[in-house]
C-alpha cells in the first residue's frame, strides 16, 4: 500500500511535469510572431547573443595563438603554447583545488540558505525582518573591506585558513542561496506536505519524498550560484587562505599581471568556464522530481 494516487492522477502529474517549462527548455509559444514582430525578435536575439559572445572572442582567438601582434587581424601562428604554459603554471592542481572549494561552498551554503528561506517564508520567525537584512548584508560588503577586517578576526580566533576561506565564501554565497530559495518558497504550496502528513507520512518521509523533490530545481539553481561564488573568488582565497589554496583565479590573476601571457590566460579562462556550464546543464535538467515516487 502506498501513498500514490490513482493511475489517472499519475498520468496527469507526468503530463504536467513534461509541460513545466524550465530555463533552457524549448517551449511551445502559443502564438507565433509574424512579419515585423518576427524580424524584431530575430534582430534582438542576434544582438543579445552578440552582446554576450563578443567578449569571448579575444579569449578564443588568444587560446590558440602562439604569437599575435598588432595590427594582424588573426593570430600569426597557431599552436598550443598557451596550454603548455598554463599546465606548467600548475593549472591542473589549481583546477582540482577550485573544484573542491566551490563544491564545498555550494554543499554548505545551499542547505543553509534553503533552511533560512523556509523559516523566513513562513510567518512566525522572530525578528524576521532583521534576519532578512542580516542575511542579505554580505552583498553590501565590498570584498576588500570584508577581507581587510575579517581576516584579523579569523587570525586572532586561530581559525585555520582553509576553514576561514570556506566560512567567508559561504557567507558571501548565503544571500544568493537564501534569496533564490525565498522566491521558490513563495511559489511553493504547503498543501503537498500537509496532504502527505494527513495521509500518514512521517515528517522524514514527507521531507525526502515530497518536499525536497518539489524544490529540487530551485535547490539546483541555488547550488549553482553558490558554486560560482567559490569558483570565481580571488581576494578571499588569497588573503584569508594565506597560500594554502592555490585556485584557478589565483593562477589567472598572477599570470594576467605579467606581459606576454595572453594565450595562457585565455586557455585558463576558457577552461574555467566549462565546469560551471556543465553544472548549469545539469541544473536546467533538474525537474520537480515526481513526488511520492516509488523507491
Amino acid at each position: 500500500m502506498t501513498l500514490s494516487t490513482s493511475n489517472v492522477d499519475m498520468e496527469r502529474a507526468q503530463r504536467e511535469q513534461r509541460e513545466r517549462r524550465m530555463p533552457g527548455d524549448a517551449g511551445r509559444p502559443l502564438s507565433q510572431s509574424r512579419g515585423v514582430m518576427r524580424t524584431a525578435r530575430i534582430v534582438s536575439t542576434v544582438l543579445v547573443a552578440l552582446w554576450f559572445a563578443l567578449p569571448f572572442l579575444p579569449l578564443v582567438l588568444w587560446s590558440f595563438a602562439n604569437s599575435w601582434s598588432a595590427p594582424d587581424v588573426l593570430p600569426m601562428s597557431v599552436g598550443t603554447d598557451g596550454l603548455t604554459a598554463a599546465i606548467a603554471n600548475g593549472a591542473v592542481a589549481a583546477f582540482g583545488d577550485s573544484l573542491l572549494l566551490s563544491l564545498i561552498v555550494a554543499a554548505i551554503a545551499t542547505p543553509v540558505g534553503a533552511m533560512a528561506a523556509r523559516a523566513l517564508s513562513r510567518h512566525g520567525l522572530p525578528f524576521g525582518r532583521l534576519v532578512s537584512v542580516l542575511l542579505f548584508s554580505p552583498v553590501l560588503l565590498p570584498p576588500f573591506a570584508a577581507v581587510l577586517g575579517i581576516n584579523v578576526v579569523l587570525l586572532r580566533a586561530w581559525v585555520p585558513p582553509e576553514i576561514g576561506v570556506i566560512l567567508v565564501l559561504v557567507v558571501v554565497a548565503i544571500p544568493y542561496t537564501t534569496f533564490s530559495m525565498l522566491v521558490a518558497y513563495a511559489a511553493y504550496d504547503d498543501g503537498f506536505d500537509e496532504a502527505a502528513r494527513t495521509l500518514g507520512a512521517t515528517s522524514r518521509f514527507a521531507l525526502w519524498r515530497i518536499h525536497l523533490p518539489l524544490i529540487a530545481p530551485a535547490l539546483a539553481r541555488s547550488a549553482f550560484l553558490a558554486f560560482l561564488v567559490g569558483w570565481s573568488d580571488y581576494l578571499v582565497t588569497l588573503v584569508v587562505g594565506g597560500g594554502q589554496l592555490v585556485t584557478l583565479p589565483l593562477i589567472i590573476a598572477s599570470s594576467a599581471s605579467g606581459i606576454g601571457n595572453e594565450s595562457s590566460v585565455a586557455v585558463l579562462s576558457l577552461s574555467a568556464v566549462i565546469p560551471p556550464l556543465i553544472l548549469l546543464g545539469l541544473v536546467s535538467r533538474a525537474r520537480n522530481l515526481n513526488p511520492g515516487r516509488q523507491s
Binding site: 554576450f52 569558483w231 570565481s232 573568488d233 580571488y234 579562462s269 574555467a272 560551471p276 548549469l280
Partner: peptide, 9 residues
C-alpha cells in the same frame, strides 16, 4: 557562460 567568468578575466 558570461555569468561564470570571474570579473578579473
Amino acid at each position: 557562460a558570461a555569468v561564470t567568468v570571474p570579473h578579473l578575466v
